[in-house]
């Protein structure tokens, strides 16, 4: 079983590498088709080659990124596949589960249903941006101490929603916390522990 898994992952890595090679080759081919006008800098960029691509500039966890992407790229895909920030998870990809929750301009949103081009110019905060060096954010600390998870797949989304909630409401009631996290589902149903973690986090962040 373990061998099978490893084989699969090796195969998919090599397939990805192959696709990457392909993309580069296509780019080279398109470039070759453009009449050479001298310096490389004068070549039209890909935005002009394909109107279905855009160059997106946004800040993620304080770092500015700029990249040309297909317009259909969701913020979730951009984070995970382009920036390799895989702490944000894809669950349903339909705005139903909340695993993909990130913070854009201070609001928690579903990154699966936010276009990266629509978020362009914005400031994104993901789970990777919470800890300072080796020190966990108080919300992360609370989730660890109170086991606010079982499998952990929904956890980064739960924590990002908690962050926005506690920033706005540092001293909430349990009912307010329940509502604030109602857009984040947990298939393990660790809700009791998640709620405990949120309330503990509110005490820690106030401390």
């Amino acid at each position: 079983m373990a061998n099978d898994d490893r084989e699969k992952s090796e195969r998919s890595v090599s397939r990805r590498a192959f696709l990457k090679g392909g993309a580069i080759a296509t780019g080279a081919l398109s470039a070759a088709l453009i009449p050479a006008v001298g310096a490389e800098a004068q070549l039209p960029d890909a935005v002009e080659l394909d109107p279905r691509h855009s160059t997106v500039a946004l800040k993620v966890n304080g770092v500015a990124y700029r990249k040309e992407i297909p317009n259909r790229t969701t913020l979730l895909q951009f984070l995970r596949e382009d920036l390799k920030l895989t702490g944000t998870k894809m669950g349903c990809d339909r705005m139903q589960c909340g695993a993909c929750t990130v913070i854009v301009n201070g609001r928690n949103v579903y990154s699966c249903t936010t276009l990266a081009v629509e978020a362009a110019g914005g400031e994104v905060l993901t789970i990777e941006g919470l800890a300072k060096d080796d020190v966990l954010h108080p919300i992360q600390q609370a989730f660890v101490e109170h086991s606010g998870y079982q499998c952990g797949f929904c956890t980064s989304g739960q924590i990002m929603s908690t962050k926005v909630f506690l920033d706005r409401m540092p001293n909430p009631t349990e009912d307010q916390a329940r509502l604030a996290l109602s857009g984040n589902l947990c298939r393990c149903a660790a809700y009791k522990k998640i709620l405990e973690s949120v309330m503990a986090a509110s005490r820690l962040t106030r401390a």
Binding site: G98, R107, V109
Partner: peptide, 9 residues
Amino acid sequence: VGTPQIRNM
């Protein structure tokens, strides 16, 4: 409407 995230979007 929906959830906090949906109302934020």
